[in-house]
Design a protein around this nucleic acid. Sequence first.
DNA 1: TATTGTTATACTCTATAACTATA
DNA 2: TATAGTTATAGAGTATAACAATA
Lengths: 150, 150
Amino acid sequence: MDASQRVRPVVDRLGYLLKHARERLAVLSTGALAPFGITGRDLAVLAVLAQGDPPSQLEAAQRLSIDRTTMVGLLDGLEAKGLLERRADSADRRRNIVALTESGTRTLVDASAAAETAERAFLAPLSAADAERLRALLQAVVAAEDESRG
Amino acid sequence: MDASQRVRPVVDRLGYLLKHARERLAVLSTGALAPFGITGRDLAVLAVLAQGDPPSQLEAAQRLSIDRTTMVGLLDGLEAKGLLERRADSADRRRNIVALTESGTRTLVDASAAAETAERAFLAPLSAADAERLRALLQAVVAAEDESRG
DNA sequence: TATTGTTATACTCTATAACTATA
DNA sequence: TATAGTTATAGAGTATAACAATA
């Protein structure tokens, strides 16, 4: 049995490609965000807090599809940096409403611009049209995930 | 400052898209490989062992861009399942040559077919042409990583 | 001196269970 | 009873340091 004739080379498998693509983007993003003292995950948290009304901790976690226990630590770090505030929800005192501070909003805007620059560097091997195609194709497969989850 | 007008929504960022795309593929692959008693990482190891001459542990690790200390544990598990053999290299006795057993080759071929089925399910939201485009675009950005690393 | 395989260790990310305070 | 936030804990996955055997 000649396996090498029957199996797709590792480097052509989607699992390998997605893993290494993400690693490369992570290297670029980490460097771009270092001056702001935050990570890519931190930036994602800041971004969801700015979308629509300030959410509760649980809502923020759901928008990112991460666990609420994970969110606690992320918010702890960002609150200690003065980028957000937790406020008790007067309508339901079990909840914390999480809102960006002025410093947090400024950091979000500036760090997002840096992250976009990192994305452009990541996409540099592609034409502008192909770069948008890649994003659209990934959105299509990820959107399918969200639908199947309900 | 209205951040929501200036920053790209989280779900449109490449970091988010790559993370969730990979997670969805991982769920599908894990299910497809479960009957074979191996993980996606195990399958990747089996596949590199079948490409070209059987490599040393270090060469196998380098082909996958993983650490040689990580490779030890992966090989331990696969060897215990009888899927590969470590043989001392007579030309350099520091090295172990790692080769698939007959059972390992059979598992590689069958599990690869199952993994391909999982990939097709992952790509189901896309047309066949878009599916190949996605793979090609990912290959392009990952290839750029390999070049820059030398 | 340098390299290969190995072990021990630690660090990150994540998930689960259990606690508290509120509803 | 159920939910939101929290804490403790544990499990992956990965990386670093140090060691033995060999080059």
